[in-house]
């Protein structure tokens, strides 16, 4: 009996369990001071570095207003004044989301933000942009008004022409609505979280000429070449 109890109280070494290994890897890859830094390099003090977080702020408003719209339903947001207000908030926050994201994209493109082993950061940004387009597209389709009918039947022909109409039937309001309120926002959210974690892991990309008078420039150039 005593031997049995002892066998249950022996704890495995942290490195022997999958939870321990996962924890060690997470802390090693993304230590707390990198995950939530309280200081940033001086070059981050520029308006062009603000548009990433502005995009996330707009996305939060999009999600919050979208949740309200799903709770109340089309009869509410098409008819009542408060419903119109939340519908408009949802629509215009999407417009701001894309405006901020495009300016963010231009800024990162012209500073070659994939330098310094940041390729995956760039790629997750591109993927989140594409999935966001699909999410916005399904949003336009499910407005249930004349505008959405026009967009739907134009898109139907386009999707059939490229051979994917059998999988994405835009005239099916049920499929469109589920994609818009469930699948696509989930994918956008996950990719954006991954994108931000990669930004934290690799750091904010410096301007191209940030270290041109310092020897440190060599290390950044070397990382690009690798």
């Amino acid at each position: 009996m005593t031997a049995e109890v002892e066998s249950h109280t022996v704890a495995p070494a942290p490195g022997d369990t999958w939870t321990g290994k996962l924890r060690d890897r997470v802390v090693r890859e993304l230590p707390p001071d990198k995950l939530l830094p309280d200081r940033q390099p001086s070059y981050v003090g520029s308006w062009i570095y603000v548009f990433g977080v502005l995009t996330i702020a707009a996305l939060l408003v999009v999600v919050a207003t979208g949740v309200v719209l799903t709770l109340e339903g089309p009869e509410w947001y098409h008819i009542s004044d408060v419903g119109h207000f939340f519908n408009s908030l949802h629509f215009w926050s999407v417009q701001l989301f894309f405006i901020f994201m495009v300016v963010h994209l231009w800024g990162k493109f012209w500073m070659a933000a994939w330098r310094g082993r940041r390729a995956m950061t760039w790629i997750t940004g591109v993927v989140s942009f594409i999935v966001s387009l699909a999410t916005a597209f399904t949003g336009y389709l499910m407005q249930t008004n004349a505008d959405s009918q026009w967009i739907t039947f134009e898109a139907k022909d386009g999707l059939n022409a490229v051979g994917i109409g059998a999988w994405f039937n835009v005239t099916s309001l049920g499929q469109t609505m589920l994609l818009h309120v469930c699948t696509l926002p989930l994918v956008v959210g996950l990719i954006v979280v991954l994108h931000v974690l990669l930004v934290r892991k690799r750091g904010v990309v410096p301007p191209i000429d940030a270290f041109k008078n310092e020897p440190a420039a060599a290390s950044d150039t070397a990382e690009v070449a690798s």
């Binding site: 990198k34 830094p37 200081r39 940033q40 390099p41 001086s42 981050v44 003090g45 520029s46 308006w47 062009i48 603000v50 548009f51 417009q95 405006i99 495009v102 300016v103 231009w106 800024g107 690799r202 750091g203 904010v204 990309v205 410096p206």
Partner: peptide
């Protein structure tokens, strides 16, 4: 109009000074 607004925002973001900026010697991480 939307495209012009994005262009204007992009140019302003490059040329307008950022308030409260100072060199704290951070390492980019």
């Amino acid at each position: 109009i939307v495209i012009l607004v994005m262009f204007v925002l992009f140019i302003l973001a490059l040329v307008l000074p950022f308030p409260g900026g100072h060199d704290d010697g951070g390492d980019g991480s």
